[in-house]
């Protein structure tokens, strides 16, 4: 049964359509990540589920129950906010205990204590339980904020960029930890992020949003390998996918209605001589990142970015010829079109 479902939900703020005709269903135990640029409506979507916003149209269901009109306290969700999550007038312990002492689910203090110590240990904040919430570093605050959700066992966790202010190491650690907790406990999580690594590694399914619209929903592999359109393709991959006009690379498996070709780095092979069979490009400049190099190429007046092994001694001005493996094709409107099967091996 779907744990959370949004049925054709719309919400606007004055002239801004924050969410448009959004339908989304999250299964029990599923980890869904919403990915999208700033202002895409991700936070608004979470707030609609939590009951902090009323939809203009559509329905919200939690565990099969229509909760569109229900107040937040009746919905059994936990929310990790993007900002301002801890109560500055309380200690870390009392912050963590706050949800467990609510009238909706008053708990024995003994149990509260046990639960808090479990969660504090998990998030490495046991030493800080006695601190005021204001006497924490940014990263500690964020972990306590996550902890405030984890002490509960709600129908769904809504997390709004919970790892965004942590340093890279801690983020990687917590990412694994969250995923482990989610898998072990079978919790349902709707998670918002800008970070594609978080999206790719944690999600069972990724929803890509832009301008209030859910553009594509699918497994990380689907989203990455078979994006519905050029916009979704450009959200994932680093360096970002290269979108070049089709006429530059005619031939191969190119379907007749393709107008744009999407080249991820793994679609591009560089041959370090100018007399390969494919189109010839000029190295414009090389960025050294240590473990890899970003090579900026010019082909006609278009730029491409791809990866190269640092051992490959490329320098600006070199000419290389390119070969392409299974690139993505997009039509006039930007929608992906399948490769031409018959021409695949050409």
């Amino acid at each position: 049964m779907a744990e959370v479902a949004l049925v054709d939900v719309s919400k606007s703020f004055g002239a801004v359509d924050a969410v448009r005709n959004l339908s989304l269903s999250i299964a029990n135990g599923e980890f869904v990540v919403l990915l999208g640029p700033t202002g895409a409506g991700k936070t608004t979507t979470l707030r609609l589920i939590a009951g902090l916003e009323r939809p203009d149209r559509g329905n919200v269901l939690i565990q099969g129950r229509i909760v569109t009109e229900a107040v937040p306290a009746e919905r059994d969700v936990a929310f990790v906010f993007q900002q301002y999550s801890l109560y500055p007038h309380l200690t870390v312990y009392d912050n963590l205990a706050f949800p467990l002492r609510s009238p909706a689910r008053r708990m024995d203090e003994q149990l509260v204590r046990r639960r808090i110590h479990q969660v504090a240990e998990l998030l490495h904040v046991e030493q800080k339980l006695g601190n005021r919430a204001t006497a924490l570093s940014g990263g500690e605050m964020q972990r306590v904020a996550i902890g405030r959700a984890l002490v509960r066992e709600p129908a769904v966790y809504l997390m709004d960029e919970p790892l965004s202010s942590l340093d890279a190491k801690l983020r990687a650690e917590l990412r694994l930890e969250l995923k482990r907790i989610q898998r072990e406990l079978g919790t349902t999580i709707l998670y918002v992020t800008h970070d594609q690594i978080e999206a790719m590694t944690m999600a069972d399914r990724i929803g890509v949003m832009n301008e209030g619209v859910l553009i594509q929903l699918g497994t990380p592999r689907e989203i990455y390998e078979r994006p519905d359109n050029a916009y979704v393709a450009s959200r994932l991959g680093a360096p970002a996918i290269n979108l070049v006009p089709a006429e530059l690379l005619a031939g191969g498996a190119m379907p007749p209605n393709a107008r744009t070709v999407g080249l991820r780095t793994e679609h591009i092979r560089m041959i370090c001589s100018a007399d390969g069979p494919g189109p010839v490009a000029q190295v414009h400049w090389v960025e050294h990142l240590g473990d890899q190099n970003h090579v900026h190429l010019k082909i006609a007046s278009h730029s491409l970015v791809t990866l190269a092994d640092p051992a490959q001694q490329l320098k600006a001005g070199d000419r290389v010829s390119l070969a392409f493996d299974d690139p993505l094709y997009f039509d006039q409107a930007g929608n992906r079109v399948a490769a031409n099967e018959s021409g695949r091996q050409a």
């Binding site: 306290a73 906010f81 301002y84 999550s85 706050f98 909706a104």
Partner: peptide
């Protein structure tokens, strides 16, 4: 910040 009350309401408190 409104988020304080909102967090409390999501956590099971009335307004």
């Amino acid at each position: 910040p409104r988020e304080y009350e909102e967090a409390a309401m999501v956590d099971g408190y009335s307004r």
